[in-house]
Design a protein around this nucleic acid. Sequence first.
DNA 1: ATGATCTCCTGAGCGC
DNA 2: TGCGCTCAGGAGATCA
Length: 270
Amino acid sequence: MPELPEVETIRRGLEQGLVGRRIVDVEAAPDRLRKHGPCAWTEMAGTTVTRIDRHAKVMRWHFDSGHQASVHLGMTGKFLFSPPDEPVRPHTHIRWFLDDGQELRFTDHRRFGWFALHPPGAPPMDTDHYGPDALDAAWTPAMLEVLLRGSRAPLKAFLLDQTKIAGLGNIYACEALWRARLSPRRLASNTPSSKVALLLASCQDVLQDSLAAGGTSFNDYVDSIGEKGSFLFDVAVFHREGQPCPRCGAEIRRIVQSGRSSFYCGGCQR
DNA sequence: ATGATCTCCTGAGCGC
DNA sequence: TGCGCTCAGGAGATCA
């Protein structure tokens, strides 16, 4: 489940292997992904990706033709560089044939991801409704506090809301709340002022720590070269129901909030 | 207007 | 062993 650190790791991998390479040809199955933008993917043939940036979990590819593509990996989206003779895996939706003889392949078996190609002069608006990227240096506790006070959702739902703070997913929302010693059930608007700075720092630190470790390697996450995350990132509560809290020893609980699992320590998260 | 729920999709994991 | 059921979850659509 790629979240911000995983997407950033993949973005860096693509920056190494894709940027500056001419795309000789593209083979695509247009109906296999849930959203593919106004342009046919084959319009990428003959272009070169000049830059890749990222907002939250969405990558933006810039082409020398002026096209731009928004890319979301959903739950299971993956990019893999492959030699051309490598067998094509099931659920491969796009293949880019590069001028160095390599292929880049996009696979996504659950098809929650999207690859939206937009024409020159019509920049994608896919993330216009997003809040600032969680790692944006411009964040201040005061900004976060305004958003918290204006919400009636539980803290966990608040952190998952990409229109407020963009980039956190289920894993890091759980982990950030644990670090801040805040219960996922607490209403966002009831977050004590004295805790807002800690919550912001916890969100950013958990993402930075994971990024430093190459992304959490849960389930089937791999970076663009096909390597698993280095797995150095230590998860305190996520998927650890029934185990002792590494901080206070109380049992880690699992509850369902807005249809998603929240893991937290009933002992030290208030 | 806001938050909760439903929906998409498929493989993994489980019980019988 | 193998079938079939449930679950996971990002985020847009829909409901309350």
